[in-house]
């Protein structure tokens, strides 16, 4: 019952990458409430990427549990995990978020292709894509443009629109602002926050930049929740 309260809940998770260069990550406890905005601060190499892969279900914890929107990720089959990710998580990466050859609109609509429930919440996908673009401060005519021709700042906003479409309960952002300059960073974050607030979406952002802390409901330091081990076993 308690799990229902949190959009994300990780308990005593342990993961070790297979292969010789062994790197292991242990997360004792991480919770994100619905519509909460959380900044996860950590230096590079602190296991952030591994943590995100665990949340998204592209890798599975060897022990412990990861619950997203009440579902135990580890209990799902690989195919179901992919579908689950598409349905519940909007993702924004540091850079190279978009298919450069595809139009902005196709990029925004792409997750709906793999998430029928999410698509069901968007009766008029193209209008919704246009609306999201507008709300994120992108010009209307951008929808037909090839994503590869946009500036990095614009691309990140398109990625945000893609994460927001169909209102997934959780948005996971991996250093989305690190490729932007300071002014663009602030604008981007303001827009992202405004939109996630409108849609009651929880936001988990991973960054090494402590200056962003003011924007968030809560700040978690990677070092407080996770231990990493490197080298030989």
């Amino acid at each position: 019952m308690e799990k229902r309260d949190h959009i994300l809940e990780m308990n005593d998770v342990f993961y070790r990458w297979p292969g010789r260069a062994s790197f292991a990550l242990a997360v004792s406890d991480l919770r994100v409430a619905p519509a909460e905005t959380v900044l996860l601060l950590g230096e590079s190499g602190s296991g952030k990427s591994t943590l995100l892969s665990l949340i998204c279900g592209t890798i599975l914890a060897q022990s412990g549990s990861v619950h997203v929107a009440g579902a135990d990720i580890g209990a799902l089959s690989a195919g179901k995990r992919d579908r689950f990710r598409a349905e519940h998580i909007g993702l924004i990466f540091q850079q190279f978020n978009l298919l450069p050859f595809a139009s902005v609109r196709d990029n925004i609509l792409l997750p709906l292709r793999f998430a029928p429930d999410r698509a069901g919440r968007v009766p008029m996908p193209e209008a919704e894509a246009t609306r999201l673009c507008r709300d994120l401060g992108l010009p209307d005519e951008i929808a037909q443009t090839k994503a590869g021709t946009l500036s990095v700042g614009q691309q990140q906003r398109v990625a945000a629109a893609r994460a927001l479409i169909g209102t997934p309960p959780l948005i996971v952002a991996d250093e989305p602002t690190s490729s932007l300059d300071a002014a663009t960073q602030a604008t981007f974050l303001d827009l992202l926050f405004a939109q996630s607030r409108v849609h009651d979406t929880a936001l988990l952002m991973v960054s090494h930049d402590a200056r962003l802390a003011d924007h968030f409901d809560r700040v978690i330091h990677m070092a407080d929740i996770a231990q990493t081990t490197r080298g030989a076993e």
Binding site: T58, D82, R85, L91, L99, R113, F114
Partner: peptide
């Protein structure tokens, strides 16, 4: 590979 990673992230099997 990046293109494929994007597809995967979007939930493509």
């Amino acid at each position: 590979r990046r293109e494929m990673a994007i597809f995967r992230a979007m939930g493509a099997r």
